[in-house]
Design a protein around this nucleic acid. Structure first.
Length: 970
RNA sequence: GCUCGAGUGGUGGAAUUGGUAGACACGUUGGACUUAAAAUCCAAUGGACAUUAGUCCGUAUGGGUUCAAGUCCCAUCUCGAGUACCA
């Protein structure tokens, strides 16, 4: 039993860490103030989804890095905002609810509590008074509120920002929509002020919906009738659902969409002013996919079969190569375009319809994955070339995607490989419009060396000139114009799920109405079952109390609705005539997607308990934006793009002062697990790894907790793991069973998960924090190996012994020696440089070197040991606090000023020069640093080893770089 | 296919503007202390040759630039991440 004395003298991390974690909580040490004379610093982590599996050692990596930075900034005199919260809406909780009937709110609460316990044990300096949870009605009230703001806005291209929909109505009333330059639906038709005034209220709402930044639209989704739900592309494998293997069909559904495409150019431009990793910026750039070119309209030539009175058709295409327009030998349409049915001739109808049916069966992903197979069908129709007036056959082909551009291309086989392959396959002519280029084998797509030929008025021109000239000609003809196209599509914002934010929306006459801010939040209703309804409605269709009473402004029971009608597809419609509804209307049944709650949480942290506003202007004006954001790169084109979009929208509305929410972003790398394998032969025996050569064995994952640092298996533990292993035979080598090891993603199913709890228990949080950083560069992925933690744990013990030994406190008031000061200041310098570059692994080594040197120097001087404790504090805060109090200080070390580096302690008078011969280092010699080049050369030449190296030769050249190196050539 | 990133001992990884390759750890080996173990401390540890002195090889591969290359240039290979018929 340890005496009081040994607890005092030994590094008892368990007691120390518990003590300081309690101190920080009791004293609210890390509470950030919204009023401060100090400069602000906002250090943010991507908040986690609280899964049932808890944290493994990979999760805290980024949190430790940002915590070190946050603590460092406090030492540097900043008012630091370092919050944490939970992205607590999501599918796993809902799945669990479906299986067990347990309410997702309960499992979510349980998981959050477990996360909190695990996070607390690691000693983070989070300001927990600012915690947010996306599934908390007090939080999602503001998610709903932002949605309403988006609904009430439209995008004005002339001012290049979002503006109030009310202002748009004023314009409509005065002059219709013809003078408006807005981002809106493609099918928006022109109307005058007079037309507008003549529209019914419903017609007006329909028109406005085409302009709103969030709007209802028919979207194609992957519908799985058996599961009664919509699936994401990656939930579909080989055309059937991943869960259950049910068939999936493409289906059009009315869903909320976000007009993010309005911000495409600004999202692109904004990348230039933020310090984010280049790969992440690249992937956003590719995702937005800007391409410059022209839109060209082709007239479809009337066919004899055309029904009388049918309007003439036009096909609009986008092309990046309008200069090659004289090389067009056919056009290709996406099979799903409605236009296809309208232009197909009777003779071609069977072939075309068969083809459309065949492509509908393939998922979008299948179609995209299969690049090699060329398929298509001729419609029998022809388009007219805008200049040559020649007829151009119109084909359909699944290599043209309905969702990109207009879903139609002008095919130039000599200039585009896909068009070339298509033309070859179907024996379509391939006219050559390039000067001096052979296209008998493949298409020619190099813009830089293009000289146009065989193209009427474009002959002899290069790509740039031809493009300019053809766009002018198209404009003169009224059949085209220069255009910039973006790949970025509007984002679907509806999910047929239960565990998400409800929309603050009810429907009158099928038109969506927003609920006033006063009555928010609209809380998730209770449901019996979390599955879709029998009629195929989303889970909220099961709610019995889910209607909006506009008289009393509250959610009421569905009985208050007079009737609910369903159409053939099972969709609920509010076909209640205005007499019968008595002011009660059906509420939206969809919920918001996972990214809704995470798109503005960083701003909410600034003023998380504000009930009147999303945040006060005072708070946002003080905190401004995120100074450092750390998180995984997997969010590159999801969360990080949507958040930037919402931020720009909020900026347009004057709600936030910055149009980019995070100045600096770092992607932490993944920590991989080192899986362990045992090898079972056909007889069921387990054979030690090195005896498996030439044997037929199957590797089986063994839990890594059964394996020691020497890869030896704890056979008893393994036998007790599973009943089927109870009586297994083990064939040993040298009396041991050795496992095989392999680096894989850390995952429960691979039994290679290491939990931070057991590490904290055995070695302490400070050891864990240091080790996670010591593993390697923050941004790289690296394998976890628990055995190595003895390195950082040993360092902490060594650090402790610098201050305390068996006789108690060691430190003295003795003046520091020159060596002591040199060691200290070398460390300050290196650590500050490392933190500035987020190179935390090298600063841990630097601490080790520092402590090794001070131990050798037998340093006991408080003048060294006090600043050292502060230096270490961001990395290993518990031990630093304890040492600080042992040094006689009261209160926390957290805001004590960081030691100041003084160059004077590092000034050297001499240098041990490496002396190289023909670039190879042979020996070293100590020389004064102020020695002139000539004197150095003379000294080196006089050295006996130089003569031995030269063996009588005369050097051709002697290179002296003062303070660096000497190289003798010859 | 395209875009981006990375290849250094048995392992994780160091190495400012080109200037002593392998810091710091883990592991391994030997030693001290101990009845023993743990803990701790000391020493060795890229490879080959050599009694020592020392020599040669060595940062994925092949070239190149340079007094000097892990670092710069060209080509190739391998691995990882993202993305995908984008007109």
């Amino acid at each position: 039993m340890p005496t009081r004395r040994t607890i005092e003298m030994n590094y008892d991390f368990r007691e120390i860490e518990a003590k300081w974690q309690k101190y920080w909580a009791d004293n609210q040490t890390f509470k950030a103030e919204n009023h401060s004379s100090k400069p602000k610093f906002f250090a943010l982590d991507m908040f986690p989804y609280p899964s049932g599996a808890g944290l493994h050692v990979g999760h805290p990596l980024g949190y430790i890095a940002s915590d070190i930075y946050a603590r460092y900034k406090r030492h540097k005199g900043f008012n630091v905002l370092h919050p944490m919260g939970y992205d607590s809406f999501g599918l796993p909780a809902e799945q669990y609810a479906i299986q067990t009937g347990q309410h997702p709110a309960i499992t979510t609460e349980t998981n959050i509590n477990r996360y909190r316990e695990q996070l607390d044990k690691i000693g983070f300096s989070f300001d927990w008074s600012r915690e947010v949870r996306t599934s908390d009605p007090k939080y999602y009230k503001w998610t709903q509120w932002v949605f309403i703001q988006l609904f009430n806005s439209w995008y004005n291209i002339d001012t290049d920002k979002a503006e109030a929909i009310d202002d748009l109505i004023v314009v409509f009333e005065a002059s219709g929509n013809t003078g408006i330059n807005a981002v809106c639906d493609e099918d928006t038709t022109p109307f005058s002020a007079k037309d507008w005034k003549a529209f019914s209220s419903k017609e007006k709402q329909e028109v406005l919906l085409k302009y709103r930044l969030t709007y209802l639209a028919e979207t194609e989704v992957n519908w799985c009738p058996a599961l009664g739900t919509v699936l994401a592309n990656d939930e579909i494998v080989n055309g059937v659902s991943e869960r259950g293997g049910h068939p999936v069909v493409r289906k059009k559904m009315t869903q909320w969409s976000m007009r993010i495409s309005a911000y495409a150019q600004r999202l692109l431009d904004g990348l230039n002013k933020i310090d984010w990793p280049q790969p992440l910026k690249d992937s956003q750039t590719n995702w937005i996919g800007r391409s410059e070119g022209a839109s060209v309209t082709f007239n479809v030539i009337s066919t004899q079969s055309e029904v009388e009175g049918e309007k003439s058709h036009k096909i609009s295409v986008f092309t990046t190569r309008p200069d090659t327009i004289f090389g067009v030998s056919f056009m290709t349409l996406a099979p799903e375009l409605d236009l296809v049915h309208e232009i197909t001739t009777p003779a071609q109808k069977p072939a075309v319809e068969a083809y459309i049916e065949a492509t509908a069966k393939r998922s979008e992903r299948d179609r995209m994955a299969d690049v090699k197979t060329i398929s298509g069908a001729f419609t029998g129709a022809y388009a007219e070339h805008p200049f040559s007036k020649e007829p151009i056959p119109i084909w359909i082909g699944d290599y043209v995607l309905a969702g990109y551009g207009t879903g139609a291309v002008m095919s130039v086989p000599c200039g585009d490989q896909r068009d070339y392959d298509f033309a070859k396959h179907f024996d379509i002519p391939i006219p050559n419009i390039f000067e001096g280029v052979d296209i008998s084998e493949e298409a020619f797509a190099d813009k830089a060396t293009t000289i146009i030929g065989n193209s009427d008025f474009l002959n002899g021109l290069c790509y740039k000139e031809a493009t300019r000239k053809i766009i002018d000609a198209l404009e003169a003809l009224g059949q085209g114009e220069g255009k910039i196209n973006y790949r970025l599509r509007d984002a679907v914002f509806s999910r047929q799920r239960y565990w998400g934010e409800p929309f603050p929306v009810y429907y009158v006459d099928g038109m969506p109405q927003m609920i006033d801010k006063k009555y928010l939040p609209i809380a998730l209703p209770e449901v019996e079952k979390y599955l879709p309804t029998e009629t195929g409605e989303p889970p909220l269709g099961n709610a019995t109390k889910w209607a909006w009473d506009t008289k009393n402004n509250k959610v009421v029971f569905n009985e208050m609705l007079k009737q609910v009608q369903h159409d053939e597809d099972g969709e609920r419609h509010s076909e209640l005539d205005s007499e019968s509804h008595q002011g009660v209307y059906p509420l939206e049944l969809n919920t918001m997607p996972g990214w809704a709650g995470s798109s503005q949480y960083f701003n909410r942290y600034m003023d998380p308990n504000n009930e009147a506003d999303i945040f006060s202007q005072e708070a946002i004006n003080y905190w401004q934006d995120v100074d450092l954001y750390i998180g995984g790169s997997e969010h590159a084109t999801g969360h990080l793009l949507y958040s930037r979009f919402w931020q720009k929208f909020m900026f347009d509305k004057g709600l936030v002062p910055k149009d980019e929410f995070a100045k600096k972003l770092i992607n932490q790398g993944m920590i991989t697990g080192t899986s362990a394998f045992v090898y079972r032969d056909d007889a069921g025996n387990f054979i030690s790894k090195n005896l498996t050569v030439d044997k037929r064995v199957s590797p089986i994952h063994a839990d890594v907790s059964f394996v020691n640092a020497g890869d030896e298996l704890d056979i008893e533990a393994f036998k007790n793991w599973r009943p089927e292993y109870k009586d297994a035979e083990f064939i040993l080598e040298d009396g041991k069973y050795i496992v095989g090891r392999e680096v894989e993603k850390m995952s429960k199913s691979k039994y290679n998960v290491v939990s931070p709890d057991s590490i904290c228990e055995e070695y302490g949080a400070d050891s864990l924090r240091l080790y996670e950083m010591f593993l390697g560069p923050l941004e790289q992925s690296k394998p976890w190996n628990t055995a190595g933690i003895t390195g950082t744990h040993g360092f902490l013990k060594k650090l402790w012994r610098l201050y305390v030994d068996d006789n108690g406190a060691k430190f003295t008031d003795a003046a520091p020696t020159k060596d002591n000061l040199k060691t200290l200041h070398k460390t300050i310098k290196k650590v500050e440089e490392d933190i500035a570059q987020f190179s935390f692994n090298t600063s841990v080594s630097t601490f080790m070197i520092c402590v090794n040197e001070l131990s050798i120097q037998k340093c006991t001087s408080k003048a060294i040991l006090e600043p050292l404790a502060i230096l270490v504090s961001p990395y290993a805060p518990h031990i630093a606090e304890e040492l600080w109090s042992k040094l006689g200080h009261t209160g926390s070390i957290a805001t004590i000023a960081f030691p100041i580096f003084e160059e004077s302690h590092l000034v050297e008078s001499s240098k041990e020069y490496p002396v190289s011969f023909n670039g190879k280092m042979r020996f070293k010699m100590e020389l004064p640093l102020d020695m002139s080049k000539d004197d150095i050369e003379a000294a080196v030449m006089a050295h006996e080893k130089t003569q031995a190296q030269l063996q009588g030769r005369t050097p051709k050249k002697v290179i002296v770089v003062p303070g660096k190196i000497i190289n003798i050539v010859g």
